[in-house]
Computed example of a mutant assay.
Amino acid sequence: MTSSAISPTILLVPGYWLGAWAWEEVLQHLTAAGLHALPLTLPGLDDADPVRLTRTLDDQAAAIEKAAQDAGGPVVVVAHSGANAPVSLVLDRRPGLISRVVWIDSGPAAPGVAFAPDFPKDAEALPLPAFESLGHQASLEGLDAEQLERFRSRAVSEPGPIVRRPVDLTNDARFKVPTTFVCCSMASAQVKELAAGGHPMFAEVAHLKTVTYVDLPTGHWPMWSRPADLAGVLVSEVASA
């Protein structure tokens, strides 16, 4: 068993439409392994927040930063999917606060990029799309009907200010934070190839100084399709941190 007194705190940051609840199964495995993990619900994704639709990427980054500071020791940030924008902001602003970042079927955001820059200004939020449409954007492999129903019933629409906002990054020290890519719907060989070829979505990858790749073949939501295996990867990465 790993001692939580000397191990990093693991901050589990979910992607679009998700809250801390998305990590429930992974959290059980991490706790059983003796690790201290804290799943987050980012500002804007708390359905009980009466002003959640006004929350911004800066609010989300501030929440992650506060959680890392409150940990009182080394922190590993695990970022899934669309969590890459606020996590990239934290890495840019406080790179020394994070001992390792683990991207789950995701990667660092590039400067000036927004999730949906043309999202209508009069639209308050982006709801979870129909699964037929979502499946063309991100793999649903490994999710059964019950898991999809839970996803649908618990998903929270993403605030417009968050999906429209470009990410402002200026600090090259973010590239020095040790980085792990957990590659699920896209194999690590393809990620490396796209990064080497200068693909815009992977522009930041080529600048990273210390990188580890782990293949975990499944769909875009491995916390549900392969929770035990994902937790095992995180246990290994925490040991290296």
Score class of each variant (00 low, 15 high):
Val233Tyr: 01
Leu148Ala: 13
Leu38Lys: 12
Ile98Leu: 04
Val182Asn: 08
Asp215Ile: 13
Pro217Gln: 10
Val113Cys: 08
Arg150Gly: 12
Pro222Cys: 07
Pro74Trp: 06
Ala85Ile: 08
Ala189Tyr: 00
Leu57Tyr: 05
Pro8Gly: 07
Lys192Met: 08
Gly34Lys: 15
Pro129Val: 11
Thr170Asp: 12
Gln190Pro: 01
Ala125Arg: 07
Pro227Lys: 12
Ala123Gln: 11
Pro161His: 09
Ser153His: 07
Val163Arg: 05
Leu45Pro: 00
Glu146Pro: 00
Ala187Ile: 11
Ala187Val: 12
Pro222Tyr: 01
Leu230His: 02
Trp103Val: 02
Cys184Ile: 08
Val87His: 00
Pro166Gly: 06
Phe119Met: 11
Pro95Trp: 03
Ala241Met: 10
Asp122Asn: 14
Val211Asp: 04
Ser81Gln: 11
Leu140Asn: 01
Pro74Ile: 15
Thr212Met: 10
His220Phe: 10
Ala83Leu: 15
Trp224Phe: 08
Gln60Ile: 15
Val75Met: 01
Ser81Asp: 15
Pro39Thr: 10
Ile10Gly: 03
Val90Phe: 06
Thr218Glu: 02
Leu45Gln: 05
Leu234Ile: 11
Ala241Phe: 08
Pro14Asp: 02
Pro178His: 04
Ser157Thr: 11
His136Ile: 12
Ile162Trp: 01
Gly135Trp: 03
Tyr213Phe: 14
Pro117Leu: 10
Val167Glu: 01
Pro200Lys: 08
Asn171Val: 13
Leu134Phe: 06
Leu234Ala: 05
Ser99Leu: 14
Ala123Val: 09
Thr212Cys: 14
Gly82Lys: 00
Val205Leu: 11
Asp92Met: 13
Ala62Tyr: 00
Asp105Met: 02
Thr179Phe: 07
Val205Met: 07
Lys121Tyr: 10
Ala187Lys: 14
Thr180Tyr: 06
Leu126Gly: 05
Ser188Gln: 05
Leu45Ala: 07
Ser88His: 06
His220Lys: 09
Ala32Asn: 08
Pro227Phe: 11
Leu134Glu: 02
Leu126Ile: 08
Pro166Ala: 09
Leu169Pro: 00
His220Leu: 13
Ser139Ala: 14
Val214Tyr: 06
His199Arg: 07
Gly112Phe: 04
Pro111Gly: 11
Ala20Val: 14
Asp70Glu: 14
Val113Thr: 14
Leu140Asp: 06
Tyr16Ser: 11
Pro217Asn: 07
Ser133Ile: 15
Pro86Ile: 13
Leu38Tyr: 00
Ala155His: 00
Trp21Cys: 04
Gly112Trp: 04
Asp215Met: 10
Ala5Val: 14
Ile162Leu: 12
Arg154Gly: 03
Lys192Cys: 08
Ala110Asn: 12
Gln190Tyr: 05
Asp105Gln: 08
Pro127Gln: 09
Pro108Trp: 03
Gly44His: 13
Ala79Arg: 01
Leu91Asn: 02
Leu11Arg: 04
Gly219Tyr: 01
